[in-house]
Write a protein that binds this DNA or RNA. Structure first.
Length: 423
RNA sequence: GGAGAAAUGGCAGAGUGGUCGAAUGCGGCGGUCUUGAAAACCGUUGUCCCGAGGAAUCGGGACCGGGGGUUCGAAUCCCUCUUUCUCCGCCA
């Protein structure tokens, strides 16, 4: 959510920049500014009326303490009409604020200058490519067949227990999963991220804070009896740690890392391209979240991208880094880098990480601010997050790319975690 | 799940209808003293919104767990939700 002040001050700039995201903002911005003017006027009115009441109340208090009961009663009579007006102004203000909020949350974050226009993912810009695509044996198997062959992931069993998209990892598959989680967490800690293990079910406020609610309600599993939501990513609980928090400038940047399962309903997105591990309802992910000083957030973004790249490189996977174009970047993001690894049997690039700077778009909702020494005004922090990494597609690529006639080779970096060198 | 108690500023903790945004202590910040530090002493100390101003700042409003109500006036009374504590029950 953009701040009202920013919208008022940089109206034309916002309209111009949002064209990159294929969003026509002019009409809505005008409405917002108009409503905000109304809001201010109404607030002014209600405040001055309230001030009157406060004055009168003090007077009455004095009169009573002097024992002048009758005089006090007389003054009381003046209040009825004012109170009626306050009530009116109050409800009007409430309506205006609600409407204003409803409009505000529909305006996307403005993209960074590096974001190019584009219609879809076709327009994304490749900024880097690394690793080598392996030469595979004849008739390489896609990971879902490898999974069956070596009995390490059981999709059918998951269907029985829950439904499609909830695989059961077995034996070396389960161990490999655990190895990856531990490896990612350990590497994160070495890079200065401090670990949290948050709840994976959150309340409505948290859903709102990171922007899943009210719009993207359909992506999350809902627990109606308690009105809780299963998290679609650790970003939700971890970022919400800092909801309504004022940090000291010297605490920045805050660097957190968290492993959680993630739950996504992914309604209506089924077909051949989402077979096997490519898209799941429940999956594991290690997430990094950074709360940064506004002047240092792009530095932080770079640091995060480097970290993710190092992880993928250490797993010896062929990868490319894409800078998302205006058509593919998310509603909340100012700049996003996607990491894709090449899954050699499917012959496809699979997205395994998305690292974004939200600038103050999220922190404005979260009300996460920081205090600079010597400055009175608290300012909004910048928030960033990224996957480091999402497991299923990494697993898919590892299985497919490392298949050999005699089994699947585990990358060296993982062996001390798995305890075995091949499957 | 049942019974009872409680929720106040960064923390501790007063305040049960009228200058209470809130005593006091601790902490933080600034200063005096000191070669320096500590101690002592003095001062200062939240957040949000509206308005004025170039700014420092000033005026107004709101906030004592959340929401609602009573009243001219609520931290204080009432309703409701949430959370915490104690006792009982149950349980990984």
């Amino acid at each position: 959510m953009l701040t009202l002040n920013f919208i008022r001050e940089k109206k034309e700039l916002i309209i111009e920049r949002l064209k990159v995201k294929n969003f026509d903002a002019r009409e809505i911005i005008d409405k917002i500014i108009d409503l905000d003017n109304k809001r201010r006027k109404t607030k002014q009115k209600s405040d001055s009326l309230q001030s009157e009441i406060n004055q009168i109340s003090k007077e009455i208090g004095k009169l009573f303490s002097q024992g002048l009961k009758e005089e006090a009663e007389a003054v009381k009579k003046k209040t009825a009409a004012i109170k009626e007006e306050i009530k009116k102004a109050g409800t009007a203000l409430g309506h205006i604020e609600k409407e204003l909020m409803e409009l505000l949350v529909t305006v996307p974050n403005i993209p960074n200058e590096m974001v190019v226009p584009g219609k879809s993912e076709e327009g994304n810009v490749k900024v880097k490519e690394g690793g080598t695509i392996p030469e595979l044996v004849n008739d390489p198997l896609p990971h879902w067949e490898l999974a069956r062959k070596f009995d390490i992931i059981d999709f059918e069993l998951g269907n029985k227990l829950t439904g499609a998209g909830f695989p059961v990892y077995k034996g070396k598959g389960a161990k490999l999963q655990r190895a990856l989680i531990n490896y990612f967490l350990d590497e994160g800690q070495k890079a200065g991220f401090s670990e949290v293990l948050p709840p994976i079910i959150v309340n409505e406020d948290s859903g709102f804070g990171t922007g899943q609610l009210p719009d993207k309600e359909g992506m999350m599993y809902h627990v109606p009896v308690d009105n809780y939501y299963l998290i679609p990513t650790a970003e939700v609980p971890v970022t919400n740690i800092y909801r309504d928090v004022i940090l000291n400038a010297d605490q920045l940047p805050v660097k957190n890392i968290a492993y959680t399962p993630c739950f996504r309903r992914e309604a209506g997105s089924w077909g051949a391209h989402v077979r096997g591990l490519n898209r799941l309802h429940q999956f594991d992910k290690v997430e990094i979240v950074v709360i940064a000083h506004p002047e240092k957030s792009y530095e932080a973004l770079e640091m995060m991208v480097d970290h993710v790249e190092k992880l993928i490189t250490s797993l010896e996977l062929p990868y490319r880094i894409m800078r998302l174009c205006g058509g593919d970047i998310s509603f909340t993001s100012a700049l996003t880098y996607d990491f894709e690894v090449f899954s050699a049997a499917q012959k496809r690039w699979l997205e395994v990480s998305s690292v974004s700077n939200f600038e103050s778009f999220q922190s404005n909702r979260l009300k996460c601010r920081f205090r600079e020494k010597g400055e009175k005004q608290n300012k909004l922090v910048h928030t960033l997050n990224g996957s480091a990494l999402a497991l299923p597609r990494i697993l898919a690529a590892l299985l497919e790319n490392n298949q050999h006639p005699d089994g699947i080779k585990i990358p060296d970096a993982l062996v001390s975690y798995t305890g075995f060198e091949s499957i």
